[in-house]
Design a protein around this nucleic acid. Structure first.
Lengths: 142, 142
DNA sequence: GTAGTTAGTTGTCAAATGATAATTGTTTTT
DNA sequence: AAAAACAATTATCATTTGACAACTAACTAC
């Protein structure tokens, strides 16, 4: 396997992924939240319960800035802090009902766009796609 | 094929792609350029010769803002404007030698990270990955 | 040839994001 | 028990990015 070629294909692929997902998530945000705030909510959504430092590390946003954005999200009643009983310096961040509803709505909209993209495909092709996602997920993005 | 499940896998996959590519491109920028400026250079790199409006459209940056960022990139001697002979309102944007060198360096660094990720894989697995990328590229991101 | 459209520019303002220093309260180490 | 390390916050400032209005120059259609 020509690794140089693989890399080129991969880079091109990644650029496309970014562009398309930008398109798809563009109108997904109903509420008045910023891009970073959306990313934070998304991260909380897929990770369920996370500390503030974890959010900061994974999203590459400094701890002070993460703290600031979380304050805004909490003010908007989209998430809440839960104190860790065994280490009272820590807080776990969780979505509120409102936050959950917001993200579900966002995902619903993204799914509409996604469905639009795959609507002309056969069941076989969909399985092929699912397989491809699994492969990449497992071999590269794990 | 369960479309709901496919979508969930896909969303999770996209989130991972974003995170990993962020990691990979984080240190790729040698020069003193901003995120948006890097995106523009990347787009010019993969697309070869593009107009300002095309850049604006594809990257979802308004025309005035695209124009401004391009001015900065041109001042930094990373790209240049070439007038379209048949329509003198238009300009094609191309990388300068310096810009080309910058992007090659960036890609080299990204490739290092990429190689790190795939170094333990067999040739068969690499071909599997290449196939997966092709499938997604063709069926979804085209 | 004139009205309308298109490609791009300039200038300005507000908001979002990034960076950093100083501080508080808690836990761990020694 | 003091010192060091850790999690998070607050405050402040610079930079980046986004949005919009007004403009120029070139092209198109009628």
């Amino acid at each position: 396997m020509d690794r140089k070629l693989l890399f080129r294909n991969f880079v091109h692929f990644m650029a496309n992924v970014h562009q398309i997902t930008n398109d798809m998530t563009k109108d997904a945000k109903t509420e008045d939240i910023t891009q970073v705030q959306y990313k934070i909510l998304e991260y909380i959504t897929v990770s369920q319960s996370v500390t503030i430092t974890e959010i900061s590390d994974c999203l590459h946003v400094s701890l002070p800035n993460t703290s600031r954005e979380l304050r805004k999200l909490i003010e908007k009643n989209l998430c809440k802090k839960v104190s860790d009983e065994s280490d009272r310096r820590k807080y776990y961040i969780q979505l509120t009902e409102k936050g959950n509803a917001l993200m579900e709505e966002a995902f619903r909209k993204i799914q509409l766009q996604f469905d639009e993209r795959i609507k002309h495909l056969t069941d076989e092709e969909l399985q092929e796609i699912n397989k491809a996602v699994e492969v990449l997920q497992q071999k590269i993005f794990s």
